[in-house]
């Protein structure tokens, strides 16, 4: 079993607008400042479109960005 963190949708079920397939929790490489890290995100199994849940974007990711803000 992978130890990569798993971030599901905040609520509801999501479907890819292009492929009409339900999103699945799939391992996604996240790139930040040229470094990569694997996390599980809701992703279209066909085209790879990924959803970053609002809670993740506005929570953890924003917090780290804010901590590293330029002076």
């Amino acid at each position: 079993m992978s130890l990569a963190p798993n971030y599901g949708p905040d609520q509801g079920t999501w479907r890819c607008g292009r492929c009409q397939l339900p999103l699945e929790q799939i391992k996604v490489p996240v790139f930040y400042l040229n470094s990569a890290f694997d996390v599980f995100l809701p992703r279209c199994p066909q085209c790879g479109l990924s959803l970053v849940p609002k809670s993740l974007a506005e929570g953890k990711m924003r917090e780290v960005e804010a901590l590293l803000e330029d002076k």
Binding site: P5, S35, K60, V64, L68
Partner: peptide, 15 residues
């Protein structure tokens, strides 16, 4: 930040 491994990654890659 009450961190998990993803937060550690973000912090490390950032700083």
């Amino acid at each position: 930040l009450g961190a998990d491994s993803f937060t550690r990654f973000l912090a490390q890659a950032g700083a």
